[in-house]
Design a protein around this nucleic acid. Structure first.
Lengths: 194, 194
DNA sequence: CACGCACTAGAACGAACGTTCCACCGGGTA
DNA sequence: TACCCGGTGGAACGTTCGTTCTAGTGCGTG
């Protein structure tokens, strides 16, 4: 793992746990076992550039995990349940620290640091795209697919927050079940709900 | 409005926009038009005490808004849609700044500042209770009601984050529709999904 | 050998952080 | 008049923040 990657990895990890303002560059350097000057060597524009790149780094990593979970089941509804379970396991195994890697940063910087906000927006869009791709294998109309992808990602995100705060995987398990039910309602009962 | 209430109000407002670490006590004092010493006069244990009280303050305020929105419609599914719309309007009218008042703080302090985490947990529990109370007017079994309340709050929370980042009310509108559909599926189609 | 490049060591900067301290003010009550 | 108390003013504390700077290392390649 290159020095640059180590910095990005530690940054995204710390920012996901402590947020943007709560994470100091000196702490990043220390935990990545890297000289402070090295951080500025790779990210000369400072903290904002580093944070934006860390969001993109986390985006790629999380998208991989998401794609793998979705591919583990043929049926889209089952795939979403699997996704919720994977995310829940990951969260529990990290002692309730590693949930969605960008939520905290996203909230803190929204409307204040455009560079980071843009990176966050791209990440969410990519994740929704992966979910939509899976849902498209059903016969669900394209507009409904797009809407469902929104709710799948947003619900998992919200459930992950609740799970982190209450230190239980329950919110995520419930969310998985509900999302599967919602998706199935678009497949099996398309006629009876407007 | 008493001096103490003004401090709490400004604190919860700033923390919701900038998070816990991103909000300085001196900024709170300035925006509340209060002497810095007054902040420590009312909250002698410092920033953590102030933050925890601000979370409780925001909790009460938000619960009121939530209850009012839920009461505006008789049908529980319609009430959730109304809730999503109220929250969306509030967010847009504040120039995409005022969403869920405690999410940012919750994420930043989870697992690190127990006093604040406890206040956050209580808030979420109260909000779920209000939703559950509304859902109970249908014939939905108690366990399903509890689970639905979880997903309603978590989905709205996640949708609010997406709305804040993308500066659109769309995620919230979609969430409202999907949640209504999910709830109705427990009323009208109770038999056909396990 | 010598050049360049990834990377480091360490000091220093002004600014901002949370917190403490203490003397003080002004209006209602006794 | 004297007192109490919510609230103030301002300075000061040590610490940490993001950032800058200069001088340098060690290593692979030409």
């Amino acid at each position: 793992m290159s020095t640059r990657d180590r910095i990005l990895h530690v940054t995204s990890q710390l920012m996901q746990r402590q947020g943007y303002e709560g994470t100091a560059i000196k702490q990043i350097a220390k935990e990545a076992q890297v000289a402070l000057s090295s951080v500025y060597h790779f990210f000369p524009r400072g903290k904002q550039e580093l944070a934006a790149d860390a969001v993109r780094h986390a985006d790629a990593h999380f998208a991989g995990m998401l794609a793998e979970a979705l591919a583990s089941e043929d049926d889209p509804a089952d795939a979403i349940v699997a996704l919720a379970r994977v995310v829940a396991d990951y969260l529990r195994d990290s002692d309730w620290q590693d949930g969605c890697p960008i939520t905290a940063t996203a909230l803190e910087t929204a409307g204040r640091i455009p560079e980071i906000q843009a990176a966050v927006e791209e990440a969410f869009e990519r994740w929704r795209g992966l979910v939509a791709e899976k849902l498209r294998t059903t016969g669900i109309p394209e507009q409904d697919v797009k809407d469902l992808a929104y709710t799948v990602i947003n619900t998992l995100d919200g459930a992950e927050l609740a799970a982190t705060v209450s230190r239980t995987t329950e919110p995520l398990e419930i969310a998985g079940r509900h999302l599967a039910r919602l998706i199935n309602s678009y497949i099996t009962n398309r006629a009876d709900v407007p």
